[in-house]
């Protein structure tokens, strides 16, 4: 067990290093010049050159990569230039470890941007997660138990309709029609949970519904299929033959087996949305990780792009790992090797 965890952690580190190298290779080969973004209209080539040098964009890619990696464990300064440090120390931004770089366009440390964005993404993700698990799994179990009835057909069809609606279309529809035109739902917006939990929830309702809809539809189908499969298993017959009441056959025997695989899928999906729900955040104009990434891409803000992609990959890989541990814990037949 301990060995397994160690092995997995090492492979996670290896994976992240690989991802960071590919991201650097891909994005620093970009034709756009990041130094060009450092100054406004009245720019002279000399200033650009000076800034390029000050920000380290004139160094070879490999050196830039190593600097970036070093920043994860030790502090950096932007610009990292002893001359500027001496002449005008107030223009130096100090970046404590773990340092993800400095966004010139935003004039901010990337780690600060991420720190601001993550609670928003987490709020959207966790709320939507609860919604789609409760709704999706609940309806899935119900439709499996009501197999062959009109209700089941209706639920299954509805789930396919919901599944076919593109997320941004649902979001735009809710935003423009339900919220703006008819005022049936509070406008979306982020209030920190600790400041005002009610306002927090109100501002999140539409994003939650938007993000949860497609997932819920998917989970209805997964849950239903798993439940039907499980209900035809021999051990369900055994439970009935033992005289176990029907509710306990469903809850203790069938759902225990049918929902265990759902837990792993749910874990992976939660990791996926925690890594940024770009469309939902963009539709509702919430500055989470996803929207930060999209904006950075539009601005060619390389340090932010790299940081967001790496962070997202990290969350995804981490959740993969946690889910594997969880599955081994939930299914006694699985041994970690």
């Amino acid at each position: 067990m301990f060995q397994y965890i160690l092995k997995r952690l090492l492979s996670i580190v290896g994976m992240l290093v690989l991802i960071s190298i590919s991201v650097f290779a891909l994005f620093f080969a970009v034709p756009a010049d990041p130094a060009r973004l450092t100054c406004g209209k009245n720019c002279t080539p000399a200033i650009i050159e000076a800034n390029r040098h000050a920000l380290g964009y004139d160094k070879p890619i490999v050196t830039q990569y190593l600097d970036f990696m070093k920043g994860l464990v030790s502090e950096r300064d932007f610009p990292d230039d002893p001359v500027i440090a001496k002449n005008s120390p107030q223009s130096i931004t100090h970046c404590p470890a773990p340092c993800l770089g400095y966004s010139v366009t935003q004039g901010q440390l990337v780690s600060k941007m991420i720190k601001d964005a993550f609670p928003i993404t987490a709020s959207i993700a966790v709320g939507a997660f609860v919604l789609w698990i409760v709704g999706g799994v609940g309806i899935g179990v119900l439709s499996a138990l009501k197999r062959g009835t009109l209700l089941e057909r209706g639920l299954v069809s509805a789930s396919l309709v919901a599944y076919s609606l593109p997320t941004f279309f649902i979001g735009l529809l809710l935003l423009n029609i339900v919220s703006i035109k008819y005022g049936l739902a509070p406008a979306a917006g982020y209030t920190p949970f600790l400041d005002d939990p009610v306002a927090w929830a109100q501002g999140m309702i539409l994003p939650w519904i938007t993000l949860a809809m497609v997932f819920a539809a998917l989970y209805v189908r997964l849950t239903r299929a798993n439940m039907l499969e499980t209900l035809s298993e021999d051990y369900i017959r055994t439970a009935r033959a033992k005289g176990v009441p029907e509710w306990a056959v469903i809850a203790r025997h069938a759902m225990r087996a049918a929902l265990t695989p759902i837990v792993t899928i749910a874990g992976l999906d939660l990791g996926g949305v925690l890594a940024g729900a770009a469309i939902t955040e963009t539709v509702f104009n919430l500055n989470g990780i996803g929207k930060t990434g999209v904006y950075a891409i539009q601005q060619l803000d390389l340090p932010v792009i790299v940081a967001v992609v790496l962070l997202s990959a990290f969350v995804i890989v981490l959740f993969n790992f946690v889910v594997d541990l969880l599955y081994a814990f939930l299914d006694p037949r699985v041994t970690l090797r």
Binding site: Y163, T167, L211, V214, F215, D269, A278, I279
Partner: peptide
């Protein structure tokens, strides 16, 4: 699984 269905169902 990383391309979350909710986001764009790939």
């Amino acid at each position: 699984m990383t391309l979350s269905a909710g986001e764009f169902a790939a």
